[in-house]
């Protein structure tokens, strides 16, 4: 039997709290654990994130750099809150990250 099987590990990380300078280190540590386990493709679902500051953004950029250097990538799911979306546009995150409306759409790109 001629089979061609590929397995891909993609971490889907759903964040439900604000991401600020207090809890960003915890998020980073959890993402570091996943990277250490060999996962290089990530969907970060930010739809329920009410607030994201520059420390949170730094975690996302750091993950992106590390994932891409390991041939992986990071896709985001847009926050539902319009103001949080605006911050991602203001900082031009939407030009660097692929940001989808839903988890399913984010996964499709991989």
């Amino acid at each position: 039997m001629n089979l061609d099987i590929s397995l891909y590990s993609i971490a889907i990380v759903v964040v439900r709290d604000r991401i600020d300078a207090f809890n960003a280190p915890e998020l980073r540590s959890r993402l570091d654990q996943l990277l250490a386990e060999g996962i290089t493709r990530f969907v970060l679902d930010l739809s329920d994130v009410p607030f994201l500051d520059s420390a949170g953004m730094a975690v996302l950029v750091n993950l992106l750099k590390r994932a891409r250097s390991a041939e992986g990538d990071v896709r985001l799911v847009w926050p539902k809150r319009e103001e949080t979306q605006r911050i991602l546009r203001l900082t031009k995150f939407d030009r660097v990250f692929k940001i989808a409306e839903t988890q399913a759409a984010a996964l499709k790109g991989f």
Binding site: D53, S54, A58, T91, K92
Partner: peptide
Amino acid sequence: DMALPLEERPIGGLGLHLMRQ
């Protein structure tokens, strides 16, 4: 340096920039 691609920008300094924006 907002002209640099985000992934090439050094992390840090963004907070003050955001405050000014």
